[in-house]
Deep mutational scan, measured.
Amino acid sequence: TTITITINGEELRIRGDHEEIHKILKAWEEDHNDEEIVRLIRELAER
Results as ranks from 00 to 15, higher is better:
9 G>W: 03
25 L>G: 02
6 T>H: 11
37 I>K: 03
9 G>L: 03
18 H>C: 14
43 E>R: 05
45 A>M: 12
12 L>P: 00
39 R>N: 09
20 E>G: 06
35 E>Q: 10
34 D>M: 15
39 R>F: 02
22 H>V: 08
17 D>G: 07
46 E>F: 03
14 I>W: 03
8 N>R: 08
12 L>W: 06
32 H>Q: 14
32 H>G: 13
40 L>P: 00
31 D>K: 11
23 K>P: 05
38 V>E: 09
11 E>C: 08
20 E>R: 04
18 H>L: 13
7 I>K: 01
30 E>Q: 10
31 D>N: 15
39 R>I: 05
6 T>L: 12
25 L>K: 08
9 G>Q: 03
17 D>T: 14
1 T>R: 08
20 E>H: 07
3 I>K: 05
3 I>P: 01
18 H>M: 12
39 R>H: 07
13 R>F: 13
22 H>Q: 09
23 K>Q: 09
27 A>E: 07
9 G>P: 00
1 T>F: 09
21 I>R: 01
46 E>D: 11
9 G>R: 02
47 R>A: 12
41 I>S: 01
10 E>M: 05
30 E>R: 08
6 T>R: 13
32 H>S: 11
18 H>F: 12
8 N>D: 12
44 L>H: 03
46 E>A: 12
28 W>S: 01
8 N>Q: 09
6 T>Q: 07
10 E>G: 04
45 A>F: 05
29 E>P: 01
24 I>L: 14
36 E>M: 10
30 E>A: 13
35 E>F: 06
27 A>V: 07
41 I>M: 04
4 T>N: 05
43 E>G: 07
29 E>D: 09
6 T>V: 15
34 D>V: 14
19 E>C: 06
21 I>A: 03
24 I>Y: 02
22 H>T: 13
15 R>T: 15
13 R>L: 10
6 T>G: 02
27 A>Y: 09
17 D>A: 11
36 E>D: 13
8 N>E: 06
24 I>N: 01
40 L>M: 09
43 E>C: 06
21 I>E: 00
1 T>P: 08
39 R>M: 04
10 E>P: 01
23 K>D: 11
26 K>V: 09
30 E>T: 13
35 E>N: 11
20 E>L: 15
47 R>F: 03
2 T>L: 14
16 G>R: 02
26 K>T: 10
27 A>F: 07
18 H>A: 13
20 E>C: 03
7 I>L: 08
35 E>M: 13
45 A>L: 13
1 T>D: 09
11 E>Q: 15
32 H>T: 11
37 I>V: 12
15 R>G: 06
5 I>P: 00
34 D>N: 14
27 A>M: 15
3 I>R: 14
42 R>W: 03
27 A>D: 05
21 I>L: 13
10 E>V: 13
38 V>H: 10
8 N>K: 06
18 H>S: 12
17 D>L: 10
34 D>S: 14
4 T>L: 09
26 K>H: 13
13 R>I: 15
39 R>W: 01
31 D>E: 09
40 L>S: 07
3 I>E: 02
46 E>R: 07
34 D>Y: 13
25 L>M: 09
39 R>T: 04
45 A>D: 05
2 T>N: 06
45 A>E: 06
26 K>Y: 05
14 I>S: 01
14 I>P: 01
29 E>H: 08
5 I>A: 01
13 R>Y: 13
32 H>Y: 08
25 L>C: 04
4 T>R: 09
47 R>H: 09
25 L>H: 03
3 I>D: 01
38 V>G: 07
25 L>Q: 06
14 I>K: 00
1 T>H: 15
16 G>F: 05
17 D>Y: 07
22 H>A: 13
19 E>Y: 07
25 L>S: 03
42 R>C: 11
4 T>S: 11
10 E>T: 07
19 E>M: 08
40 L>V: 11
7 I>F: 05
42 R>K: 14
37 I>A: 04
16 G>E: 03
15 R>Q: 15
40 L>T: 08
47 R>W: 01
27 A>S: 12
13 R>V: 15
16 G>I: 08
33 N>W: 14
29 E>S: 08
11 E>M: 11
15 R>S: 15
2 T>G: 05
7 I>M: 06
43 E>K: 08
37 I>T: 10
46 E>Q: 08
20 E>N: 06
43 E>Y: 02
1 T>V: 15
5 I>T: 01
4 T>W: 03
6 T>I: 15
44 L>E: 02
2 T>Q: 07
1 T>Y: 08
22 H>S: 11
17 D>N: 12
17 D>H: 11
31 D>S: 12
4 T>M: 09
19 E>T: 14
47 R>Q: 14
31 D>W: 11
24 I>T: 02
44 L>D: 01
34 D>I: 15
43 E>P: 00
18 H>T: 13
7 I>H: 02
33 N>T: 13
17 D>M: 09
16 G>Q: 03
41 I>K: 00
42 R>G: 06
35 E>C: 08
9 G>A: 03
20 E>P: 02
43 E>S: 09
7 I>D: 00
